[in-house]
Design a protein around this nucleic acid. Structure first.
Lengths: 347, 347
DNA sequence: GCCCCATATGATAGCGCTATCAAGAAGGTC
DNA sequence: GACCTTCTTGATAGCGCTATCATATGGGGC
């Protein structure tokens, strides 16, 4: 048998990305790689003259640091995973935009993915993101599969659950109370003299937050001694879904003087249906939504809705994470950012 | 001076992420790390019995591969960077959703980011993504800063430019002709007897594709001997912007019998303005859009628009990239997926 | 002038994985 | 049975960077 341990020159073909490496920068600047790394990571620690030389070498070579190598060496990447139910609808887009903007200008890379309101997809996404050794994870809502929670706890990183502040956060919750939002809008409708208020939502088994708004609605009508009617549509919210939903209620001759939709998209669909049928809004039927999307202020009539603190959630989440990354540890565990009732003409 | 070269035991504190590593899996399964790696990467190459042992060890330990380490070793990560102008509007969301879905189920991670229609932000994003050694990059449109193009060429990876198929792609272009789309819709309006067609767009210096649709519009009206009027609004498209834009045209008493909006969002705003003013659509004014967004089919009246191959672009891009990753090299350089004229009641 | 301490820079060992090569096992051919 | 090929599995050297430690340098204080 040949001596396995015999040291011999390695003749293997080596790989390599062909990219400019920190080593080349160091050589050109006439310093060590440690110094280059320091210039890039903690600029204060290096003298101005060396830092200048390093920076010009970086420019001259067009050096782009390899984040994989950096993340591997540092045992933690400069990424933050963000999981939302859907980027298709614009509810979360404002939050993500704000959050990504703030984090990326602080030097962090946001990975985002959407679950399409499925716990299984959420679990898969969380797992995929954890493979990047993220510095933090941001999820939407407080309900997750058992395994998702286990993975997140095991990762020992800051976890923000946004868009909700009810009980049971893994780590930090930043959002507002959907139950309060539902109650608040319903109370407003009752004050306006509405007595037969119907709540319409979509896939509320999956969309927990819509379900909580429905709960708030239920509390409010019940407290006022009025009947509660909750319709849960079987497919995802869309403008196209709102019309048929209203049409169905009319066909079934459900007594109603207000339609409270679980979001503006459904509400817009219902509004269009009213136009088609010549139902006067709000005289014959009040319509209210949730979300205060782009069109809510300019549709006909303008939509009474609830404005969630979309951007504030992103801003607060970014601030919280950056503080944690900076070592601050005693931070609030739950931040309720409230919401605004936007009273317009539809209700 | 002390002997620098003297080999002495390293007593440094080491770090480590604390995560389960491939080594632990290998030890538990009683195989080498090579085998574990193979089971995960090319399952066919390992015998069933070993593969089974490895897989159960993976499950038992809850092993999640560290993609940083993997990407570093392989000199190329399993990521694909995707850059779109905006995730806020739903134009690109359908494409991204499709693309991410297909790539992620094939084991690739999509990084996406939005430029907000700014070339400078695009450049920054491309640079940030390249730091991840992506296996490919996907951009929107064909116009980019010189440096962006240089960085992309230097990366020597597949680059897809989507949503456009005019000249000058860096590598692969997948989309459709916006000029043809603009021409097509305008010709339809002319066929319908419209003679004073006004085109309204927003930030068309930045939104090249809208500008190309305007160009197509110009060609068509000019060919028909009709006057061309192009309005370029100074802020980003929104429903709220469409109303005032129409109002302004009316105040200025611009002669017009059709309003061709650069997208459905503006068109919806205009439609609402017509409702407010009691302008009959399409009798007094035809309104056409672009995008075939959610609401286009259900608004009142339903919107005549152009349906871009949103999902097909995502599907084709994913297919093209996966083929490239699999080693196929002689692939088409440009794929024109066409578009559909959706004729509804608004025009 | 000597010592001590703070500061700036360099040397180096991995981070956890995959690509490469080596070697053993199994099967086929003459 | 010797030889060759094919198929599995193992050993190992980095991928490019950062954390850690070591060393050089430069002032002050006495």
């Amino acid at each position: 048998m040949r001596a396995r341990t015999a040291p011999k020159p390695d003749s293997r073909l080596r790989r390599g990305s062909g990219r400019v490496t920190m080593d080349e920068v160091a050589r050109l600047a006439g310093v060590s790689t440690s110094t280059v790394s320091r210039v890039l990571r903690e600029p204060g620690a290096v003298s101005d003259s060396l830092a200048g030389r390093v920076r010009s070498a970086v420019d001259r070579l067009g050096y782009v640091p390899n984040l994989m190598a950096g993340g591997l060496a540092a045992a933690r990447g400069r990424t933050v995973g963000v999981v939302v139910p859907s980027i298709l609808n614009s509810f979360f887009a404002g939050t993500i935009d704000t959050l990504s903007g703030l984090l990326s200008s602080a030097g962090w890379q946001v990975l985002d993915g959407s679950t399409d309101y499925s716990e299984a997809r959420e679990e898969a996404l969380v797992e995929a993101f954890l493979a990047w050794s993220p510095a933090a994870m941001v999820l939407t809502g407080l309900r997750h599969s058992e395994r998702t929670v286990r993975l997140l706890r095991a990762a020992r990183i800051p976890v923000v659950e946004m868009w909700d502040v009810s009980e049971g956060a893994i780590d930090i919750a930043i959002g507002f109370s959907h139950r309060a939002a539902g109650r608040s809008m319903t109370q407003y409708l009752i004050e306006k003299g509405r007595r037969r208020i119907v709540f319409v939502g979509a896939i509320m088994t999956s969309d927990q937050r819509a379900a909580q708004r429905a709960e708030g609605y239920r509390e409010a009508v019940t407290a006022a001694g009025l009947p509660a009617t909750v319709i849960d549509l079987p497919s995802r919210s869309s403008v196209a879904l709102g019309g048929p939903a209203l049409a169905d209620l009319l066909v079934r001759q459900v007594e109603m003087d207000a339609l409270y939709c679980s979001n503006d998209v459904l509400a817009l669909g219902a509004l269009f249906e009213c136009q088609r049928r010549g139902i006067a809004v709000p005289q014959h039927l009040s319509i209210a939504g949730f979300g205060d999307l782009d069109f809510a202020a300019s549709c006909v009539p303008p939509l009474t809705t609830i404005r969630p603190p979309r951007e504030a959630i992103g801003r607060e989440t970014a601030a919280m994470l950056l503080a944690r990354f900076a070592g601050q540890t005693h931070l609030r565990r739950a931040v309720d950012l409230g919401f605004d009732l936007q009273i317009r003409r539809s209700a």
